[in-house]
Design a protein around this nucleic acid. Structure first.
Lengths: 283, 283
DNA sequence: CTGTTAGCGCATTCAC
DNA sequence: GTGAATGCGCTAACAG
């Protein structure tokens, strides 16, 4: 039959199975940091590409962080073939209705019922901070992500552990993934701890902002202070100095999440993807 | 009835109207320049957001440039609620079947049957080049886009006209929208015309590459040579020196194109969106 | 286990 | 004009 070029009609199937023909991508958070994040575009692009093979489409939903009902409302809608939640919080995931079990995946932390496809932030951070230590840095500061993002916890923990091993005090400053905050964080760090010799930001955009902030302070990178980012966004290699960072297979992660949902494969509770150090000029 | 919260079922409607529940985004070209272009992500994000309101989804398709049949094959598939073609060539648009008339839009050049939503490249280029002239530059070179991209023609034409008005000779070098090519183009330009005092690239990524190339040659920007880009990508404001460019409402354009298709509004043959000069440090 | 049938929710058609 | 019937292409439930 397939030899005759038969292709099932997605709409008809969706109608009768009451299952919908679209894959919703829900991004938690509506701050500028999230809206402008190229990361979301990469996830969406990969998902839309996977969806194309299955005759379904993807839709994008930005959900407010502090409205627990919004995810449930989205998931209740008809026409939903599946759901991929980006950067979820665990409480938010608890609100997805049972009916969607097996058709939900998370890019970020997951729960017992929602399989997670995520970057191994712990190992990634460990790799970056160890690189800083290996190249002679000892007074290393870290700019974190938004406090509500659970994925940042593992990274901060890894940073603390490496520093503890070297006997150094942690110097943690809160960030929000924006470049503007990076510039501010740089000033804050150099004011509080003037002898800082390295800054690790949990976001490339923030790291680029740190580069800017340090430049404005007259601090040379990497001579005086090394700077490292996280994610390896497209521009990381184009900044001056080119940004040392850790690269993540975002496309691969998003593709796997989309496939897991569309193919109703029950994935492992958590699948970690490697974070790989990319040494450029800034550290 | 709507007061009772009635929402039509998209799948059922799609089934009976044989019209599909997804909006396909077809991107013409499979070169690295297109695949890595953040522009596509922005278009897709906007389209997916519009689609979300309509209970439909979007799918993404990268079409080879030299396979005229690919667009027709895509358009023939069922499940297609509409089609938005990004960066189309006119011959490619001619291949979309009649059945889709009224449900196709182009982001880029259009045809009689395919309404176009596009940046006013002519006015944008005019604005940038005039700015260079106004700030004292006279020997201005231009790095174009891929030759097959029709949208570049208007820009090159505008560039030539401004230069003609100043009595200067055009210095046009072919580009491909990549940063790597920008670096190469910079070398090429400074070799062929060593007295060049400004470079305008029809792509920010290329302009950033030009910045790199000039830096390697020991040329100071903007003191020796001014550099201007086109598009105002996210990183344009973060490069050093920050890139002077022209900003485009990509989200607005993509949203309008998606709406035109999904709402079956017959749009004007061409809708131009403004290109607005953003003066930063590089020019 | 194979073959048949009812019906998903809507738009279109036809009868009135 | 308003209202009932048909069928889009498929899956699930059922009968043989």
């Amino acid at each position: 039959m397939a030899a005759l070029g038969y292709v099932p009609d997605a709409s008809a199937r969706a109608l009768v199975t009451r299952t919908g023909t679209r894959l919703a991508i829900a991004v938690i958070g509506r701050t500028a940091a999230v809206l402008d994040d190229p990361y979301v575009g990469r996830v969406l692009t990969s998902a839309a590409h996977v969806a194309a093979e299955r005759e379904v489409g993807v839709s994008l939903h930005w959900l407010p962080l502090h409205d627990p009902g919004s995810l449930a409302r989205l998931a209740d809608g008809r026409g939903l073939g599946g759901l991929v939640v980006v950067n979820p919080t665990r409480p938010a995931l608890e609100t997805v209705p049972r009916a969607l079990r097996g058709r939900v995946a998370a890019v970020g932390v997951g729960t017992r019922h929602v399989p997670s496809f995520d970057v191994d932030n712990r190992a990634g951070t460990d790799g970056v901070v160890r690189h800083l230590v290996r190249t002679g840095r000892r007074r290393i500061a870290m700019v974190t992500g938004p406090s509500w993002l659970p994925c940042g916890d593992r990274a901060v923990e890894a940073y603390r552990q490496v520093l503890e091993a070297t006997g150094a005090e942690p110097r943690v400053v809160p960030g929000d993934f924006t470049a503007a905050r990076g510039a501010g964080a740089a000033v804050e760090i150099m004011t509080r701890w003037p002898d800082t010799d390295a800054v690790f930001a949990l976001s490339d955009l923030t790291a680029l902002g740190v580069l800017d902030g340090l430049h404005a302070l007259g601090v040379r990178v990497p001579d005086d202070v090394a700077v490292a980012g996280f994610d390896d966004i497209a521009f990381a290699g184009l900044s001056r100095p080119a940004l040392t960072t850790s690269t993540h297979p975002v496309e691969e992660i998003a593709t796997a999440a989309a496939r897991a949902v569309l193919d109703r494969r029950d994935a492992a509770e958590t699948t970690f993807y490697p974070s790989a150090l990319v040494v450029r000029e800034s550290a």
